[in-house]
């Protein structure tokens, strides 16, 4: 079981063609037929090959703009890779990012049901787990409040609670633990995370928090300007990263 590859990327590159934002109106489309505006080509990712096995805690580090978030979006199949690249992800995944994932106009309860249902849980199971989720997130009093009134802390606690209890197999986490909860909640979530690893869940973790990477990850990828520099144990990669920063 342990050696199953759940995420595999084969020669994945990603280029963005960025035009001026104002190009996306009817008038500008018409007037710029004769004089097209300059297109910036950004190579966000260059030829990435990697395999993540079931139960891995996979860290991704790199400087700002090195393509970490893009890589995560490719993994979660929001962006398709350039031609020739191949992405496979097996299992239910949930991406945890600050500020997305829930609809502000819906209440906590509705959001829990919506998210968990999309992850494949039946209403019956969600009903059984509901109390657990809301207690874990420490939001018992706010079950029927709209999520848009939540503080960012409450928001992330809820997202985390749903992800953990909704039986996602793969967690794609983008800079998520920066502001999540107080020490007690952090300890609790870290404990849950460790248990998750034992249970064989796979976690991909993008962060600037090197301590968190050191403590949790068993494999780390270092990206620099979209190029994979090294994949290996956290100690090895951190040395390389520090060299890069200088």
């Amino acid at each position: 079981m342990k050696d199953n590859i759940v995420i595999s990327l084969k020669s994945v590159s990603k280029t963005f063609k960025i035009k001026d934002k104002s190009d996306y109106t009817i008038r500008n489309r018409v007037t710029k037929i004769l004089k097209p505006s300059k297109i910036h080509i950004i190579e966000a990712l260059k030829n990435i090959n990697l395999e993540i096995k079931e139960g891995d805690f996979f860290g991704i580090i790199g400087r700002n703009g090195s393509g970490k978030s893009t890589l995560l979006k490719i993994m979660s199949q929001v962006y398709p890779p350039d031609k020739g690249g191949k992405v496979d992800i097996l299992g239910k995944y949930l991406k945890l990012t600050l500020g997305t994932g829930f609809d502000g106009e819906l209440t906590a309860k509705e959001n829990i049901y919506l998210n968990a249902s999309l992850l494949g849980l039946t209403f019956k199971r969600i009903g059984n787990k509901f109390q657990e989720i809301i207690e874990f997130a420490e939001l018992e009093e706010f079950v029927n409040s709209k999520v848009k009134y939540f503080s960012s802390g409450m928001y992330s606690r809820l997202a985390f609670a749903v992800a953990v209890h909704a039986e996602a197999d793969i967690f794609l986490i983008d800079e998520f633990f920066g502001g999540v909860g107080d020490e007690k909640f952090k300890q609790k979530s870290e404990k849950t995370f460790r248990e998750s690893i034992i249970k064989g869940k796979t976690i991909v973790f993008v962060s600037h928090d090197l301590n968190a990477i050191m403590e949790n990850c068993n494999k780390v990828l270092l990206l620099n300007y979209g190029e994979p520099i090294i994949i290996g144990s956290p100690e090895k990669v951190l040395i390389e990263y520090n060299r890069l920063l200088k």
């Binding site: 979006k73 929001v78 995944y93 949930l94 991406k95 997305t100 994932g101 998210n115 999309l118």
Partner: peptide, 9 residues
């Protein structure tokens, strides 16, 4: 968008 970007759907 919040769903499309965060969950397999």
């Amino acid at each position: 968008r919040y769903l499309i970007e965060n969950i397999r759907i």
